[in-house]
Amino acid sequence: MYTIGEFGAKTGFSTRTLRFYEELGILYPSKRNESGHRLYGLEELAALQRIQSLKFIGYSLQEIKELLDKEEITLENFVDSVPVQRKVLVHKREELNRAIAAIDHVQALLDDDFPLDWTVLTSLLHGMEFEEEQKAWMKEHFPDDFASLFTDIPKKKREKLDREWLSILAEVKRLMRENVPPHAPEAQQVFLNINDLFMRIVPEDVITENIDKWEEQLESAEADDFVAPTFWSKEEEAYMEEIAKAMEQKYKESEGK
């Protein structure tokens, strides 16, 4: 038999962890010595190995406790839970794959010296984290031919579009930092660049044929609970709105001549 310190040294577990397992109710010392100190033996070693084996295949400590708390601890209890646990692990693997892809994407942008702030970074990561949900939302609210233009963009093309979009965002930040007025040509050029980027995703003839139908569906979709991530701060949104107003006013003046 071993004291908790000796048992921890032999198994590689700290006394703090062993005490926590005891408090949780998944590892009890079978005996105590005359001084009342915990004593651990082969039975506790087997229990500890069982705990670690279950942790290895993804069971949480609480799930291990629930499994071991059954009136009769049998292999059948474990076997019954295996299919569910496999689904949990597959889901975690998919989440990890998305997280790794997001990190790779951000790292590539950083390697290219693209300026990132928390608003942009959060929006990028949010978009990648909930990509499947956003695809489902698009397909629910818009015609398939329109939704597919956004949801079926090849990886390389998406990365290129992201780089162009980040360049536009950086330009907006520069314009605001230098107090360039919304009616200035370089400010309005940003708006034109955004329009050009959108037109390269959605062909002009597709827009012309479906604009009325899509605007109606967009108004309906805006009332939905889904909130798309925004790359703009509130100040940047206000600045872009002022640019749009200035361009609209310029257009009206040219039409009146």
Results as ranks from 00 to 15, higher is better:
residue 111 D to Q: 14
residue 191 F to I: 08
residue 228 A to V: 12
residue 75 L to A: 08
residue 30 S to W: 07
residue 37 H to P: 03
residue 139 K to G: 00
residue 34 E to P: 06
residue 161 L to P: 02
residue 86 R to N: 05
residue 88 V to I: 13
residue 103 I to Y: 06
residue 45 L to W: 12
residue 66 E to C: 00
residue 203 P to G: 04
residue 146 F to A: 01
residue 15 T to Y: 07
residue 227 V to R: 15
residue 21 Y to D: 03
residue 154 P to S: 00
residue 99 A to K: 12
residue 178 E to L: 09
residue 161 L to G: 02
residue 132 E to H: 03
residue 132 E to P: 00
residue 19 R to L: 13
residue 205 D to V: 11
residue 17 T to H: 09
residue 186 E to F: 01
residue 132 E to F: 00
residue 122 T to S: 13
residue 48 L to W: 06
residue 184 A to H: 14
residue 189 Q to G: 08
residue 131 E to R: 08
residue 173 K to W: 02
residue 41 G to T: 05
residue 211 I to F: 14
residue 208 T to M: 12
residue 161 L to I: 11
residue 213 K to A: 15
residue 158 R to W: 09
residue 162 D to G: 11
residue 166 L to W: 00
residue 176 M to V: 01
residue 216 E to I: 12
residue 134 Q to P: 04
residue 95 E to T: 06
residue 69 D to M: 02
residue 241 E to W: 04
residue 143 P to E: 00
residue 151 T to H: 00
residue 109 L to A: 04
residue 111 D to E: 15
residue 123 S to E: 07
residue 96 L to H: 01
residue 94 E to C: 01
residue 143 P to H: 01
residue 52 Q to M: 11
residue 223 A to D: 13
residue 31 K to Q: 15
residue 128 M to E: 13
residue 199 M to G: 11
residue 155 K to M: 11
residue 121 L to G: 06
residue 82 V to H: 01
residue 70 K to L: 11
residue 140 E to D: 08
residue 112 D to T: 11
